[in-house]
Design a protein around this nucleic acid. Structure first.
Lengths: 136, 136
DNA sequence: TTAGATCCTGTAGTCACTACAGGATCAAGG
DNA sequence: CCTTGATCCTGTAGTGACTACAGGATCTAA
């Protein structure tokens, strides 16, 4: 059964555990977000608990909409034990501003599309207010 | 002054007229969204009115969040004079569903971040509820 | 021992652009 | 007509955040 030297797991296993695609994990390692794990005698990666923690951290950040560079900054703070609640809060608040901008852009699209759609006859005719506006 | 054979304009000019980057216009041509314009004797592209219309159509679609494949479909409908108001409306309504999904994802991020941020002390201390949650 | 699952590497593809290099052409002024 | 400087031409490479291969090696369970 599980071998992989003492307590580590393979890439496939940690991928399932964290819900992160196995290729993505390799990618995170390549760009330096995830430290290189040790290897089995045959060259297979062996992931320890710390890698799982790291991956979950990254995943939560992604779910909050941070990009990989932002996550790198956050991880650096944590690694260097230089976390300042004030700065992290600022970081988060800035990010909220970006998110709100995106939401407002999307809402504008939504409004416009719904407005256009409401003017459609809904019939199988060549005359369409949506196309008219696009061609205006 | 303006030469460029009869009534056409250069790429730079049409870029300014439409508000679309000149490189982007070349890209649209390359992927077949924009028909190839005629050329001057020296090989420079000469854009006519129809190109300007096309580019404005594309731009409006992009502003409504359609991707280039969706725009390609829309343009094909128009070109083949196969516009059906019913189908276009359906198309738009489907797109609205996607937009709403994006908005709700973003709102969830926003809510979570604001909630976390509200728990921050705002002080320059290493203890931070945001980092705590990310590391949990 | 062997089958089949998983892993290794490097590379290429995705989307919608954007940016460059190195050279040709253009329009305007003299 | 000639020069100058702006614009244009081409092909290619880079962006972000993955994802998907190919062709081979290694692993684990039976």
């Amino acid at each position: 059964m599980h071998n992989l030297e003492k307590s580590g797991v393979s890439r496939g296993v940690i991928a399932k555990q964290t819900g992160i695609n196995a290729e993505t994990i390799r990618y995170y390692e390549k760009i330096g977000l995830l430290s290189e794990p040790s290897r089995s005698s045959g060259g297979h990666r062996i992931y320890e608990n710390k890698h799982g923690q790291r991956l979950r951290f990254i995943k939560r950040c992604r779910e909050l909409g941070f990009n990989l560079e932002e996550i790198r900054s956050l991880l650096t703070l944590v690694d260097q034990q230089e976390v300042s609640c004030e700065r992290v809060q600022h970081f988060a608040d800035d990010h909220v501003i970006n998110i709100r901008k995106k939401i407002s852009d999307l809402r504008k699209m939504e409004r416009t599309l719904k407005e256009l759609s409401s003017r459609c006859s809904g019939e199988d005719v060549p005359d369409c207010p949506i196309i008219d506006v696009l061609q205006r």
